[in-house]
Structures are given as structure tokens and as C-alpha cells.
Amino acid sequence: MTTIGLIGGMSWESTAVYYRLLNEGVRARQGGLHSADVLLHSLDFSPVAEMQARGDWDAAGDVLADSALRLERAGANCLVLCTNTMHKLADRITGATRVPFLHLADVTAKAVRQTASRRPLLLATRFTMEQRFYLGRLAAFGVEAVVPEEGEREEVHRIIYEELCRGRIKPASKARYLAIIAKAAAQGADGVILGCTEIGLLISQADSALPVFDTTALHVEAALDFALAAESQAA
């Protein structure tokens, strides 16, 4: 298969899920001892999170562009950014490299469009829920995602950074997320986008009657589709 370049570490908890799912996916599709051809650059999340908090997106963009270029030079044939929030800076990656970039919002929107859902609830970091870089990208595909009210957004964000990114899975936080989902469903939401790659550690389709779109799993499937199709074309 062609080489997949992963820009990870933000957080490493979800990047580890990417790596596992990629390898499980290759094994399921190709069998035997096959595994994923992957290059991973795992960034130190602490300075990146500090850049996010102080709104220094230009510096964060420099970090991502450098990471992407290093992967391309190392032989990656496509790039996967293992975080929803940092897709705010997707243009910095595509501007620095020439290999295909698999945009997570596009992958998610296409998956939603394959269902009857058109007004899903978006659970994510505050940056992703409150800024247009992600919501607008979904809307371009006809997906008008809704977000929780302000206090709920703060709680969703806090759980991501203080718990999930640190590997802490708490039943009380899961119950809080499910309550937010139930409230949104009562107000007309017809799906749930797990719009932060760590949320899949807490919530799954088994927890909701609404269709659940796990962006990490969807991104992995898109990367495998691309990598295996490229291999087939090269054969």
C-alpha cells in the first residue's frame, strides 16, 4: 500500500487509536500478516495547546507546516492530520506540501450525507464548535450541524482537555455528554458528530439511538481507501 503520513500527538491518546485502526483495517482488508505502511510524526501537544489557548494560530500553523513537509520528504504519499481542531490550519499544510491532504471535515460530511442526517449535533473543542472553519466546511456539503449552548460547550471542551487527552475516562463525563446529546435530540438534532478525535474514547454508536459519526474511524477508512486505491493503480 502507499505510505500514509500521520501528523499526530494532539493528543497521542487519539493518535494511538489512528495507528491501531489503520493496522486493523489493513488486516481486515488484506488478511495474513499485512499491516499499514505509515510514517508518524508525533508532536509534543503541550506547546501546541498553549498556542491554541493564547490564539497564536500563526505559530501553530508553522509547526504543522513543518511537520507535514518533514513527512512528505520522508516519503509519505498522502497526509492525515490526526486532530479535528487543527484543521483550522489545513491551508498551512496544503500550502507547504504537494501530496494529497485528506481533510477530516470533508470525510465526515460525506459520511453524514450517506445517511438521512442533515442536522447533526457537533461535539468538539470550543474552537471547532464556535469557529466557522469546520462548521462552514460541513455546510458546504449541505450538513447544517448544530452545537450545544455556551455552558455545555465549555463542559465538553473541559472534558476533552482535562480528561480525554490525559487518558482519563470517567463515567460521570460520559453521562454528561449523553445528557447533552439527549437534549439536542429533543430539539431536533438528527445525528451526533464526534468532532474531536478523543471523544470516540468516551462515546460510541452503542450509546445513542441517533446515528453517531466517529471522525477518527471515518478518517482512517478514508485513508485506507486512498492508500489501497493508489497501490492498485500503481500495480
Rank of each mutant, 00 (worst) to 15 (best):
I4Y: 01
I4W: 03
G5L: 04
I7P: 09
I7W: 06
G8Q: 10
G8W: 07
G9T: 05
W12K: 07
W12N: 10
W12A: 12
S14M: 01
A16D: 15
R20V: 02
L22S: 06
G31Y: 05
G31H: 08
G32Y: 06
L33G: 02
H34F: 11
S35I: 13
D44I: 05
F45P: 08
F45C: 10
V48S: 07
V48F: 12
V48A: 11
V48L: 13
A49F: 07
G55D: 01
D58T: 15
D58R: 15
S67D: 09
R70C: 13
R70E: 12
E72V: 10
R73A: 14
G75C: 14
C82F: 03
N84L: 01
N84Q: 05
N84V: 01
M86G: 09
H87G: 03
I93H: 07
G95W: 09
A96W: 05
T97I: 06
V99Q: 02
F101G: 07
F101Q: 02
H103V: 01
A111M: 00
V112M: 09
V112W: 11
R113A: 06
S117Y: 10
S117G: 13
L123E: 15
T128L: 03
M129I: 05
F133T: 05
R137P: 02
F141A: 12
F141S: 12
V143Y: 01
E144C: 08
A145V: 03
V146P: 00
P148F: 04
E149F: 14
E150P: 08
E150M: 08
E154N: 10
V156S: 03
V156L: 03
R158N: 02
I159V: 15
E163C: 08
C165F: 04
C165W: 06
A172S: 06
A172N: 00
A172Y: 01
S173I: 13
K174N: 09
K174W: 05
R176K: 14
Y177K: 10
L178H: 04
I180W: 06
I181V: 12
I181S: 09
A184G: 05
G188Q: 09
D190V: 10
G191A: 01
G191R: 04
V192C: 02
I193F: 01
L194D: 12
E198A: 06
E198W: 04
I203L: 15
I203V: 15
I203A: 13
S204Y: 11
Q205Y: 10
D207M: 10
L210N: 11
L210Q: 08
P211S: 04
V212W: 13
T216L: 12
V220P: 11
E221Q: 15
E221A: 15
L224P: 11
L224E: 12
D225Y: 00
A229I: 04
A229Q: 00
A230R: 10
A230T: 12
A234P: 01
